[in-house]
Write a protein that binds this DNA or RNA. Structure first.
Lengths: 215, 215
DNA sequence: AGTTCAGTGATGCGT
DNA sequence: ACGCATCGCTGAACT
């Protein structure tokens, strides 16, 4: 007899878990915390680390058969074999509010873009046009500033420490403009940068500009 | 009076949350699930979505003062103002087993590297030397295979679908070898590729090779 | 549906 | 401790 489980709950139980889908995993028997939300989300947590051992995102369907919990979503399946239930609690009127986040990359990017034409701006160059999230076939450019001499200033913004991947991302954008015969100068604006990335930028004539999140 | 809280527990409560650290966030009052692990991990979950609204990784210190829970780790602080506790349950003997994952990138990479010298291998070229995780100043190369004519075959392996970032990563490696005057051919091996990435690879003389995870 | 990118990414492994 | 790359990343925004 199989029952569809829709309600939200937490369950602390001795169990073992098998997952199969994009990857494949097994979890040896033990005591784990199982959380289910009524959007289909399922999480299995061990007693350490922040991330769940197994999980199923929203949209999964949970069914119970005897001592077996099975969650299915597209090609991915989680099977939980329950050995002993330590406790079960249904969660009613669980709030679905979102959090409000500050100090995002978008905020930093907008701040830079809004001040770039001023003399105290990032470039201190006579800019005639500014684009945010400028679309190209090789990705969207955070800030594109065109100066009075038609030089294209390509600016990649990062909220944290810059790594090699960010430098390559910037290079992909500048190569695109070079291919279509534009004069380009390329920048990364961030609070910090790794030493490898710093070396790479110098060797490739990229400019790093330090910017801090305003309070 | 402030008490250090070390035990693992789940707590369902009406509360509000403030976070301050690398970023900054607020969560309006509501019913949320609070999970604490004895390694310091703290998670605050809303009634939808897989990822927790707020969290603190292992190493955080949790303290309770009246109706206030405060978790601190380095420069990051979470403050939970408790309005009403719906239930509290301590979790004893919580297992800390790890899961065993299959179909990882490392497995795929090793499989390719081990078979690359055979006639049925990825390249079907006379290879004399194979390096795994070959170190360069611009990152580690998944597989470097050198053939009898001293051509450097640079292979980037991805477990899932290839995107533009992977192409740029590969480009960074090949440019490094070009700079030190080597003959280079560059490949990405993966089960799938995005259309944008496919176009990019063709335009930049990179070769995509489809490989599937063995069962 | 497909693709890209941010993220308090987290986590693990190397130096 | 820092740097780097992977992840079943998740989630969001846009095409």
């Amino acid at each position: 007899m199989t029952i569809r489980v829709e309600q939200s709950f937490v369950l602390y139980a001795e169990c073992s878990v098998q997952y199969n889908g994009r990857a494949k995993s097994t979890l040896v028997p033990g005591n784990y915390l199982i959380t289910h939300k009524n959007d289909g989300t399922l999480k299995i947590d061990g007693g350490s680390l922040c991330t769940s051992l197994n999980y199923q995102p929203p949209g999964a369907i949970l069914q119970k058969t005897k001592n077996l919990l099975v969650s299915v979503r597209k090609e991915e399946t989680i099977k939980i074999k329950l050995k002993q239930i330590h406790f079960y609690k249904e969660l009613k009127e669980w709030s679905v509010h979102k959090i409000n986040i500050d100090k995002t990359e978008a905020q930093l990017r907008n701040y830079i873009a809004n001040n770039i034409k001023t003399s105290s701006g990032l470039l201190n160059i006579n800019i005639k046009e500014v684009f945010i999230e400028f679309k190209t076939p090789v990705g969207n450019i955070d800030i594109l500033a065109i100066d009075v001499d038609n030089v294209y200033h390509v600016i990649e913004v990062k909220r944290g420490k810059v790594n090699l991947a960010a430098c390559s991302q910037l290079e992909r954008y500048t190569n695109y403009f070079l291919d279509i015969m534009k004069d380009v100068k390329d920048y990364i604006a961030s609070p910090d940068i790794s030493s490898n990335a710093s070396n790479y930028m110098k060797a490739n004539h990229q400019t790093w500009v330090q910017v801090l999140h305003r309070i």
